[in-house]
């Protein structure tokens, strides 16, 4: 299967580990990724706080490149990007006034035929689970994983149309297929506060602490994530959180694609594991992977 690939700003800089591991996993699953020609930033939270039209126009620019180049499916691994892209598609399909004005601003007339997928959605496509199971070389036996889905993978359901909104299961089922043990916990879709990370870090530290604390309480060896922003928050800020709240977590925040890659037998270098700030060594020793 061939997909257009929209890495987004994070994966092309700070989250190169997610980028590497996603590509490795896709190679193993015979999924071809072709980077969208001259893509630009999705606008994140700044575009929709500035102008509604701009928040549609920025994703449309990249989506229209994919459409022009003959793609009808696109993978966006960052939660913020995938929501902005999906929301822009919906606006273009359903709001004639927005469509008319966007068309006036562009030379190419985007028809909204490119369907946007988060990598987890691709893994949930029919028949994929069997393929994933068949690729497992080293089981994650004994590894207790808290799957953290973040804010906008399943919300708002009108746009996301994926998984169970308040208690998603897709990542859990992947961890199970890899031989690991997904944990039941109640912070799967709580917000980590990342949109305030540069401005009001006090809020971010509190929300991220809540998530880490809950994961620790249910006995997680690791938290699996599916977004570069969640990862950066929970991992790079973990020391600040430990300082501020006088606690000791040391929980590695690992991309679900890195766990897949490990189970498929890829080398840790190929998966960017050395880029994680909280070392995953302890957790991976539990299942004999390090």
């Amino acid at each position: 299967m061939r997909y257009a690939y929209f890495p987004g700003c994070s994966l092309s800089s700070s989250a190169s580990d997610y980028d590497l591991s996603l590509k490795a996993v896709c190679r193993a699953l015979d999924i071809e990724l072709v980077e969208v020609r001259d893509w630009v930033c999705c606008g994140a939270s700044s575009a929709h706080a500035t102008s509604h039209l701009l928040s549609v126009a920025m994703p449309v620019l990249s989506l229209s490149h994919a459409e022009e180049d003959g793609f009808d499916r696109l993978i966006a691994p960052c939660l913020a990007c995938q929501l902005r892209l999906k929301a822009a598609n919906k606006e273009m399909q359903e709001d004639p006034e927005v469509r008319e004005r966007i068309h006036r601003a562009f030379d190419y007339q985007y028809r909204a035929t490119v369907r946007v997928y988060h990598p987890l959605e691709v893994m949930m496509e029919e028949g994929m689970m069997e393929v994933i199971r068949s690729r497992v070389r080293k089981k994650l036996s004994g590894l207790k994983v808290a799957c953290y889905y973040g804010c906008v993978l399943t919300r708002p359901p009108k746009i996301a149309q994926f998984d169970i909104c308040e208690d998603p299961q897709s990542m859990d089922s992947i961890i199970r297929a890899l031989g690991g043990e997904p944990l039941d916990w109640s912070y799967k879709t709580e917000c980590c506060g990342v949109s305030m990370t540069l401005t009001r870090s006090d809020i971010v530290l509190k929300l991220s602490n809540d998530i880490l604390r809950e994961a620790k309480e249910v006995g997680a060896h690791a938290i699996a994530v599916c977004c570069p922003l969640c990862q950066a928050n929970l991992d790079a800020r973990q020391i600040q959180i430990e300082d501020r709240y006088r606690v000791q977590y040391g929980i590695p925040i690992i991309y679900f694609t890195q766990l897949m890659g490990l189970a498929f037998g890829a080398f840790s270098k190929e998966l960017g594991l050395e880029k994680l700030i909280t070392s995953p060594r302890g957790a991976l020793e539990i299942c004999g992977l390090m």
Binding site: C9, S12, S13, S14, A15, S16, R37, D38, W39, V40, C41, S51, L53, L54, A57, M58, L61, S62, H65, R101, R104, A105, F106, A232, A236, E274, K275, I277
Partner: peptide
């Protein structure tokens, strides 16, 4: 983050920036 090569010193440029500027000013 810097030590692990996660923060880049220089900006990435996209060839799409020119088109984006045009679209933004039209909007």
């Amino acid at each position: 983050m810097f030590l692990r090569g996660k923060l880049k010193f220089f900006p990435h440029r996209s060839e799409g920036a020119k088109e984006l500027r045009k679209v933004m000013s039209r909007l």
